[in-house]
Simulated scan of single mutants.
Amino acid sequence: MKLAEIFSNFRSEPVKSISQWQDKRFLWVFMAVLSLFMVILAHSVFQIWLYMRPCEQCVYIRLAFFAIAFGGIVAAIKPSNIGLKIVGYLFAIWGSVKGVAYSIKLNKIHHAAHSDDLFGVQGCSPEPTFPFHLPLDKWSPEWFKPTGDCGYDNPIIPDGVQLSSMQKAITDFYSEGWYLWPPSHFMNMAQCTVITFGAILLFLIVAAACWIVTLWRKRQSAAQTESSTCTGKLA
């Protein structure tokens, strides 16, 4: 199907179009890849390469992204299968809702930590309590063990480490903490993840609503067709 035809169908029947898109793997795979990219970026680039230590809320945020990725993978196995799609939705919506909550809490802690409101710095512990009591920090400490303080995500270079010229330049760039644009302290990490989780959640809500409406319309149409057939036979 050509791009022009896709947009034409969307303008004429947006609900049906969005529902049909879900029966393709692309959107589910894209959601899973985006979520895994965010986790890998946080772990492999910011934590390992730039020495930014993850806090308690940070590892919870990672779990939320993994839940969304798992939901996308499950649904992508066969998007037209109602059971797999429902499981995918449940994991992805749960992850996005929890991700928004974790990110908002981290943003509040970040604001308190960089102000005079010392009593506002709560909810940050080196001993995380994951949902369903999963001991993820024991199973995979490199990914889920908090080693930093909430609200302070600037690089902490271990003694004796020799940085490459690129590492030195980037760690200096983030010396006052992670911001989308550090020189002006524009949008901290928590604010960026709130937007990311919020966008995913909005997409999921809209997509689920369109899917449910489409299923309801199909059943209504099938019922009307059956009723007309029965009426015709009686006549």
Rank of each mutant, 00 (worst) to 15 (best):
A92G: 08
M187D: 10
K168T: 06
L3T: 11
H133A: 14
I109P: 00
C210M: 03
A235G: 14
P182A: 08
E226L: 14
G71W: 00
Q162Y: 06
T171W: 01
V87C: 12
L27R: 10
Y51E: 01
A169T: 09
T229M: 09
F37R: 05
T171C: 11
A190Y: 07
Q20A: 15
C124E: 06
S140T: 13
K233E: 13
S227M: 15
S80Y: 09
F91V: 06
P182Y: 04
S17W: 13
W216Y: 15
D116Y: 04
W21L: 13
I18L: 13
F10P: 03
L106R: 04
Q167V: 05
M166K: 08
S125M: 10
W181Y: 14
A69D: 01
W216C: 13
A199K: 09
Q20E: 14
P14C: 02
A113W: 13
C210T: 15
L202N: 09
I77V: 08
E5I: 07
V100Q: 00
K145M: 12
R11M: 11
L202M: 12
V29S: 04
L90S: 13
F91I: 06
V194Y: 02
Q57I: 05
F10C: 06
R25C: 04
A101I: 14
G95T: 01
G198T: 14
I170T: 01
W28V: 07
F203Q: 11
S165C: 02
Y51V: 06
L163K: 00
I109S: 00
E5S: 11
M52W: 05
P126F: 07
K16D: 08
S96W: 00
R219T: 13
V39L: 02
D23R: 14
I205L: 04
A64M: 08
K168Q: 15
K168C: 10
G123F: 05
Q191Y: 08
G148L: 04
D23Y: 05
F7Y: 11
F197P: 02
L27D: 07
L180Y: 08
E127D: 15
T214M: 09
G120H: 11
W28Q: 03
D116N: 15
M1K: 11
A222Q: 13
R53M: 07
V121T: 01
A235H: 04
N154Q: 14
L90W: 10
D149H: 12
G151C: 05
E226K: 15
L134Q: 09
A92V: 12
V206C: 09
P155E: 02
K168Y: 10
D137L: 02
N9A: 10
W49Y: 07
C55P: 02
A113D: 08
F46W: 10
V100K: 00
C150V: 07
R11A: 09
S115N: 09
V87I: 15
I93S: 13
L84V: 10
M31E: 05
I156W: 04
T196P: 02
V59F: 00
S12M: 13
M166V: 15
I6R: 15
I195S: 01
V45W: 14
W143R: 05
M187H: 12
I156G: 03
C124T: 12
L36S: 06
N9M: 05
G120C: 11
T229D: 13
N154Y: 11
S103H: 09
T171E: 06
V194M: 12
M1L: 09
P54Q: 03
W211H: 08
Y174E: 04
H133E: 09
Q122A: 03
I205Q: 02
A209K: 07
Q220W: 06
L50N: 00
G177W: 01
T129Y: 11
T196F: 04
C150D: 06
